[in-house]
Design a protein around this nucleic acid. Sequence first.
DNA 1: GGAGTGATGACA
DNA 2: GTCATCACTCCA
Length: 177
Amino acid sequence: MTKRKVLKKDFFEQKTLIVAEQLIGKFLVRKGSAYMITETEAYDGFHDKASHASRGMTPRNKVMFGSAGVWYVYFVYGMHHMLNVVTGPEEYPAAVLIRAVEGIKGPARLTKKLEVDKSINEQTLSQKTGLWIEDRGIAVAKRQIQKTPRIGVVYAGPIWAGKNWRFVLKDDDCKKK
DNA sequence: GGAGTGATGACA
DNA sequence: GTCATCACTCCA
């Protein structure tokens, strides 16, 4: 039987890029349903122009400056929620955006399906919250993880847009050729 | 390719 | 108070 281990704060306190990569193949659990995470993006540090934190701390992104293992949910484009997990030490703005899970493509569809909204924002990942991440003992080989530039970050400039900070599980893509 | 949508942050 | 921006999805 596979061991099910709920990821705790210490996991998220690792470097953002590590966390983002490690999250691939883990399970996002919501109300008894589990979905394997297949796509993440890292947002790391003050200087990352693609990160909300690059403009300094604001009421919205202050969660990213907080301690790790906390959900950061925010609203964009007037209709979409985004689901992030705060990583790194306190006072350091970093988060991993969960862009997709098995069977659900697209970050906004994900949150819609899982009924994630701002009530989750600033909540700790735990069973109590009703939304957490589990390690179910699935090992994902490094070569199965594809690194690509992040999405929608052109405005951040070539330096930041060029970072391969997006992690995608290969084979997840059942897209037609 | 373009519209829609509303919270957010910058500026006054 | 106003205005521009936005880490997306849908429809054409």
